[in-house]
Computed example of a mutant assay.
Amino acid sequence: MTLLSKRLQAVYQMVDKDTRVADIGSDHAYLPVELIENDVCHFAIAGEVAKGPMSRSKEDVEKFGLSNNIDVRLGDGLAVIKADDQIDTVVIAGMGGILIQNILTRATEEQLSHVKTLVLQPNIGEPLVRHWLVENGFEIVDEDIVNEEHHVYEIIKAGRVDKTKPLTEAQFLMGPVLMTKKSPTFVAKWQHKLNGYHKALENMKHAKEIDQAKIDLMNQYIKYIKEIL
């Protein structure tokens, strides 16, 4: 996998074989190119919201001779998907959790009609993404966490289900699958967060105006993290 960063390699690993994929905010179409080149899927859409990135993605797709397999389209979020594309897997990687949540919320029934799997990689705001999934008929089936260039990324894979299982606040915060895997990267992330929360708590206690609600929330987070670690 020469084109993909460590973060995108982790996303790549989450895509099931023989699927039809839409990569939203594709960035050079590197992920679709790797998926097609390695026979993971045979058709992909690379969606871009601006003309500049779309042109770059088109150039790369043509360079690899994959124009018949990868359709580069201009559009906002899932607007690049049509029902007859029969897209069953949507990837949204490298955006904030609020933006990912907004993109999914704005998606129409037609755009999501065939979608069975979502592979999401928020840069921040992971709990927001998990809340959206549970509230919209998706169950988290796998998660991964990678450290790349001093930033920790979480990848969330979810499948459509008839009835979702509720998550605890700790699971929304830390990830239900990540909590069970407890990888060294996961432990390091939350140890660092724990230290940060302790410092923030000390600062809050010495502030001129005490924000009790914030202090209570911070104490709750500290309790969750300590229990899991």
Rank of each mutant, 00 (worst) to 15 (best):
E202D: 13
E148K: 05
N68E: 15
Q13A: 14
G97Y: 07
Y197W: 11
K189V: 01
Q111E: 15
N123K: 11
A158C: 09
N69C: 11
F138P: 04
L194Y: 13
V40F: 10
T105W: 05
K157F: 08
W190T: 04
Q101M: 09
Y12I: 09
A213M: 05
E227D: 07
L8F: 03
S5Q: 05
V91W: 00
K163E: 14
A213W: 02
L194P: 02
N123L: 12
E109T: 11
V129P: 14
V152F: 05
L66C: 08
P53R: 04
L217G: 00
V161I: 14
L120V: 11
Q191E: 13
Q220L: 12
I36D: 03
S5P: 09
A107H: 12
L8M: 15
F172T: 04
P176N: 08
K193R: 12
Q101E: 15
E149W: 02
A200S: 09
S57M: 03
I225F: 06
V15F: 05
P122I: 02
K182G: 00
L201C: 06
V119G: 04
G196H: 10
K208G: 01
D76N: 15
K163W: 03
I36F: 06
M95V: 02
I98L: 13
V129F: 12
P122C: 09
N219F: 00
P53H: 03
K157D: 01
N38R: 15
H206A: 13
E154H: 08
E143R: 07
K116P: 00
Q191L: 08
L74Q: 11
K205F: 10
P184H: 07
N195S: 12
H206D: 11
T180P: 01
H28A: 00
G77N: 06
K51F: 04
K82I: 03
V90H: 03
D60I: 07
L178R: 07
N219P: 00
G94E: 02
W190L: 03
L167R: 09
E202I: 07
K163G: 07
Y153H: 10
N136W: 05
R73K: 15
I156H: 05
V177E: 12
V146H: 03
T2W: 05
I225D: 06
K116R: 10
A207V: 02
R130D: 12
V141T: 15
T168F: 00
I24V: 12
I215C: 06
M179V: 10
L66M: 15
N147Y: 04
Y221F: 07
L120C: 08
G97M: 11
H198Q: 13
I215M: 03
V161T: 15
E34P: 10
T117H: 06
